[in-house]
Simulated assay, not measured.
Amino acid sequence: MSTNKNFFENFANAATTFTGSYYVFLGALAIVIIWAATSPVFQYSETWQLIINIGTTIITFLMVFLIQKAQNKDSKAIQIKLNELIAANKTTSNRIVNIENLTEEELDRIHKYYEKLSDEAEEDADLHASHSIDAATKNQEEKSEYFRKEQY
């Protein structure tokens, strides 16, 4: 099983790199131009149209899976990078790590919290301030008090 997984992983990586290249785009464009140019020769027959339809359908069908594989891998890499930033920063909430596994309802609840946090931050004198979920209200109060004392 591991050999098949490694084969698919290697194949998917090579295929997405290859199919996303400039040369493959030019090749596809050339095929379409040649197909269109041969239309008078084949008198716009159903067979002539069927050739391009079948070709594009098969390629599109296969590319959906390659694109999804690449998207899943990129998404996972981005999540790991974001988790590292959250874990490394002492002022961020570690409860946000692995947040992508929450339900839609839980994500909506956290989103509403951040909307409230944004509203509070708009009242703050420092436009660049940010807070974790755990410390947001406390930080907001402390910063407001600090700015009142320092009169920025």
Results as ranks from 00 to 15, higher is better:
72 N>Q: 03
86 I>A: 01
79 Q>F: 05
62 L>W: 04
73 K>M: 07
80 I>G: 03
17 T>K: 15
57 T>S: 13
83 N>A: 11
111 H>E: 07
114 Y>H: 05
135 A>Q: 11
16 T>K: 01
143 K>Y: 12
92 T>D: 05
131 H>Q: 10
43 Q>W: 15
113 Y>V: 01
85 L>V: 03
97 V>K: 11
32 V>G: 09
57 T>A: 14
42 F>M: 06
146 Y>P: 02
144 S>V: 01
72 N>F: 00
62 L>H: 03
107 L>W: 01
24 V>G: 12
35 W>H: 09
32 V>M: 14
74 D>N: 04
140 Q>A: 08
87 A>H: 09
107 L>G: 01
61 F>C: 13
9 E>Q: 11
133 I>T: 11
16 T>F: 00
124 D>V: 01
17 T>P: 14
47 T>H: 10
135 A>D: 14
35 W>R: 01
42 F>V: 09
16 T>R: 02
102 L>H: 09
59 I>M: 07
14 A>D: 11
42 F>Q: 05
121 A>W: 13
115 E>N: 13
121 A>M: 15
136 A>E: 02
109 R>C: 01
135 A>M: 10
150 E>Y: 08
135 A>C: 08
63 M>D: 06
1 M>K: 11
62 L>V: 03
130 S>V: 13
89 N>Q: 05
126 D>Y: 09
105 E>Q: 07
13 N>L: 12
132 S>Y: 05
83 N>I: 03
145 E>V: 03
61 F>V: 12
121 A>G: 15
18 F>A: 15
24 V>M: 14
77 A>G: 05
77 A>Q: 04
152 Y>C: 03
2 S>H: 10
122 E>T: 06
127 L>T: 07
84 E>C: 11
143 K>D: 09
101 N>P: 07
5 K>H: 03
11 F>V: 02
133 I>H: 15
78 I>Q: 04
20 G>C: 09
86 I>F: 00
147 F>Y: 10
67 I>D: 00
126 D>C: 11
1 M>W: 10
24 V>E: 12
67 I>H: 00
49 Q>Y: 12
131 H>F: 13
150 E>P: 06
140 Q>P: 02
133 I>W: 13
142 E>Q: 09
117 L>H: 02
111 H>G: 07
93 S>L: 05
75 S>W: 03
146 Y>G: 04
43 Q>I: 12
18 F>V: 07
94 N>L: 11
98 N>K: 13
79 Q>L: 06
131 H>E: 08
104 E>K: 15
49 Q>K: 12
123 E>M: 02
100 E>N: 04
57 T>Q: 09
100 E>V: 01
69 K>A: 00
147 F>C: 02
28 A>L: 15
47 T>N: 14
78 I>V: 10
56 T>K: 00
32 V>S: 11
115 E>T: 10
6 N>F: 11
49 Q>V: 05
113 Y>L: 02
36 A>T: 13
146 Y>S: 06
